[in-house]
Design a protein around this nucleic acid. Sequence first.
RNA 1: GGUCUCUUCGUCUAGUCUGGUUAGGACGUCAGGUUUUCAUCCUGGUAACUCGGGUUCAAAUCCCGGAGAGACUACCA
Length: 505
Amino acid sequence: MKEVRVRFAPSPTGPLHIGGVRTALYNYLFAKKNGGKMLLRIEDTDQTRFVPGAEEYIIKSLDWCGIKFDESDIVGGPYGPYKQSNRKHLYKQYSDELIAKGCAYYAFDTAEELDKYRAEAEAQKKTFIYNAESRKNLRNSLTMSKEEVDALINAGTPYTVRFKMPENHIVEMHDIIRGDIKVNTNTLDDKVLFKSDGMPTYHLANIVDDHLMLISHVIRGEEWLPSMPLHVLLYQAFGWEAPEFAHLPLLLKPDGNGKLSKRDGDRLGFPVFPMQWENPETHEISSGYKQSGYYAEAFINMLALLGWNPGTEQEIFSMDELIEAFSFDHCSKSGARFNVEKAKWFNHEYLMKKSSEEVGKDYQAWLKAEKNIDADLQYVTKVAALVKDRVNFVKELWEQSFFFFEEPVTYDEVTVKKRWKENSAEMMRKAAEVINGINDFSAENIDRTLNEWITGNELGMGLVMNGLRLMLVGAGKGPHIHEILALLGKEEALKRIEKGIKALG
RNA sequence: GGUCUCUUCGUCUAGUCUGGUUAGGACGUCAGGUUUUCAUCCUGGUAACUCGGGUUCAAAUCCCGGAGAGACUACCA
């Protein structure tokens, strides 16, 4: 097998959404699995759709995901430049070559004229197609004399170059995921290859660049399947060997129908973008996985399993494990509906696997940023160790551990009603005495001492423990009492008990 | 409308090539257990082969036909 070379080729027309990230991921996994190269090519042939910051956003996002390129304008490479606007000068000769070979022709129809034809056809419930039939009646180099054409071009008349689609020819193609596909060229149209603004269209630039960059496998979304015949025909017209194709299933909306779009995210309460994006024009902010608290590893793991499976029951994969396991044999053909709950579960799994130190560090930063609390790292790490298994995200840690950072201000009404009995106050005074008497204030020792005291005096475990919880936490939740006591320290604990007794009486 | 693609639990999917499974797993959900609390966790349950024909002793799996869904249908990618 020849060297595997794949590319991810986004258009910088906005932020990359998770479908695009997955396409990049599968390209990356396939390349690495096969010891090949992965390159990034920016396809910015449409100058009217340029969005400032989009290219930088794409690069930063993929970097966060851990998808690294072997060749790009950033890291360099022997086939650059890797941005099509910087390759502009390359394309015209190929368009000329096709015309010389009789595979393409000049067309002088203006955009307005074509719009008019489409509107007229639509009025009769028909579709206007620029093809072998209609091109006979349109203004192009197939209907005009050479002199006429030369005169128009020399006069600077705008023109496009169109592919001359062969008539009644069956294009036989093979897709790695979908198998054999046949299409009759009569259903296809004469696509524009070269625009009147001097830029190639996607179709031309894509084929030329893939050829020049020695791409072996084209791995892209299913939305490209309809242009596959044109692309195959272009390779044939040039006399080039075509790469292999793999068209990936689409990512669908979690509700309703259709493919996932940029607007779905914040409408349904989950991000569609890897990282937060601010629209440079409207300054509207779209949320991102990173900012929502997802770990990149969890995000990638979740995305990898949307449309691919290992064939085993393993679900948690590191990037290296994904590379090892990846194969198109286990890619599905049908679109995958995105599921937020499962995404959260993945993050939960990764959060549990992380060390308390790591989670503690993130939580410490969160506390500073969100609550303006300067917490000691050692202390936060201990808190994280106690509660990290209970949440999906670092930001949810607060809900489970706020009482380690601030004393209770209110006491949960339902819990008070249920747990605070007539003799509770008296019991808490006694408990405070016992706690005050503990010298070795370790969780184990507190646990033992409290247990001995309660069982020895037949006081009722629930009465004492639930009462203490109310004093220390202000609610009926949290880790074991002895753990809370040990972390809070004797002084703080006693203070809270005293305060609680006063408050609840 | 036309062309192409797709179709297994609510969702992601295994199984289809090489017919014979109690159609498996995960998320969700429900129940139970653990826990002095809440959560986590553990155990169990729930729930699917798009429909109709055909071939066969036997069809999710092979064949034919319908239905539904999606993508594309720009001098956008």
